[in-house]
Design a protein around this nucleic acid. Sequence first.
DNA 1: TTCTCCACTAGACACTGTCAAGTATGAATA
DNA 2: TATTCATACTTGACAGTGTCTAGTGGAGAA
Lengths: 192, 192
Amino acid sequence: MSSAKTDGLRRQVLDAAVAIAATSGPDVISMREVARLAGVSHQAPYHHFGDRAGIFAAISEEGFRLLANAIEASTTLGMAAMCEAYVHFALAHKGHFRVMMRNDLCSLEDYPSALIQADRAFNALRNEVTVILGEDSHEDEANAHTAYMWSVAHGLATLLLDGPLLKKLGSVADINALIRNVARKASSSITV
Amino acid sequence: MSSAKTDGLRRQVLDAAVAIAATSGPDVISMREVARLAGVSHQAPYHHFGDRAGIFAAISEEGFRLLANAIEASTTLGMAAMCEAYVHFALAHKGHFRVMMRNDLCSLEDYPSALIQADRAFNALRNEVTVILGEDSHEDEANAHTAYMWSVAHGLATLLLDGPLLKKLGSVADINALIRNVARKASSSITV
DNA sequence: TTCTCCACTAGACACTGTCAAGTATGAATA
DNA sequence: TATTCATACTTGACAGTGTCTAGTGGAGAA
């Protein structure tokens, strides 16, 4: 049971943490700072999250839920669309994505409810690969194709978010066009 | 000018930091801890690195130098080999790689000597792409292909290093075979 | 000898995460 | 109504951190 005020603080802390992660990165998130931003004592957040890793776990769960939703919604549109959905999620939810992909901040295995959401996202990709390859394909090939698609999407997302890709490429008029182009290349090499 | 003893401490600190990054991640690296490991006072490392970011910059420069060497050495072997070289570098130099790809630890632009090494690696990839596409290809296509190859390599490297890829895939008998398979898929879609 | 770097030490400061203990409030129970 | 009790906090303390400032010892040059 949790009162309105409780959920209020929990939400405030979460939102503050996600915002900090989006602008300055997750490492800058501090228990005392989020408490300060919420206007409560430095120990108040502990009541809702246990410790610092608990905040990261809560952000991860929320992020993986959103990611799984986005990916599942794109399955009917094919492999390229899933890849695009992954990258667009990362760009649209910078704060969440940065936390989700940092296993050192909180190891997912310790937070089963977050792990469930992560599995939803993975299974959607995995299923789509087996559908395309056919049920009777070898497991090694399914593994390789899954790893391949995930690598493209994840690599592009992280390079766009925190990497020097855009800076190095120099002139990129339309990022969405670049994402679509890369996603199409990836999916074409899987159907062939 | 730097004495043997000076370089000794600098090396010791760097090695300790890389080792910590490889086992526990860069965030665990502490000025006081590396000083303790080297058997000097908590302020000694400041003389060589200025501040904490300076250690990360030194690790980055060293890492990018090694990466550029590996990639340049693989250019004659083709696109797939470059992709494999990138992933193998990440696995073989876990500590370096983790630091290099974390722009929040030290922004490369503030450390020109590190930036030079990073550019060496990027240019090797970029050149190979233009060689394959031909000099007269459109810049957008060259950009997309470069982003694409980099994404595959970087995505696979990060997923293998810190991501849940292997855990999720379940049974992967031979990691090197998986890397080779993914690299071949990537390079095949660029030559077609 | 004196001067002056160089590599390092020592102490302090503000900041952090977290443990332990106290307090106000509202609901349930006797 | 009076008492109990859990919830949602506050306050205070502690060890650990990065880093600023101020020393210290020793080697080479004048």
